[in-house]
Design a protein around this nucleic acid. Sequence first.
DNA 1: GCGACAG
DNA 2: ATCTTGTCGC
Length: 219
Amino acid sequence: MHVNQLHPWPTSVSEAESVQERLRLHVELTGPTDFTTVAGLDVHYHGDDALSAAVVVLDSGTLAVVDQVVVHGKAAFPYVPGLFAFRELPALVEALERLTVTPDLLVCDGYGLAHPRRFGLACHLGVLTGLPSLGVAKTPFVGTHTTPDRERGSWTPIILDDTTVGRTVRTQKAIKPVYVSQGHRITLDTATAQVLRLAPRFRLPDPIRAADHLARQST
DNA sequence: GCGACAG
DNA sequence: ATCTTGTCGC
């Protein structure tokens, strides 16, 4: 698939923050509710700045693998909370470009709207590709929230500056919740429903698990 | 001011 | 994220 090229690559924290402030204006918070194929994205780090970026496309109904790509590269930015996306973006974009199919939804490992400038990795990948996207994180990052009930499917809002920016979602009974937020061209209801549908058996959605496994195995 | 801070 | 041992559960 084709991905719009990244704008002048930031070389400082302030430049990276400017890129986020500019691109965030393109985020759309409504979109389709159903998807034929779904891509999971994840990155595995080795040593200093070496990394493997994996994308696995699954059939949305059967969860069978349709296509997969691994790219080996280097972190493109130092780790700075809030600018985490700049580390993995070039490798993930290259992996997406090498896909033979265009997925209908990107399921990203990290945050989307639940971000200090409302523009986490999931938003960034969504805007660059033009595809619907959502973020699933394993730990809280910004905002306040309460604990959801222990039943699978229960959730609570994540609030930042009096605005809902995501949800804690219990994907399995009595298992730690995940933190879901919108990326691009998707509603929070749809993002929540998709995460639950894609995580029928484990804490994390199958597309992310598949990408995680592929990135690890590729070492 | 200090610590914490997606991966 | 990674490092590494221990522990729990299928």
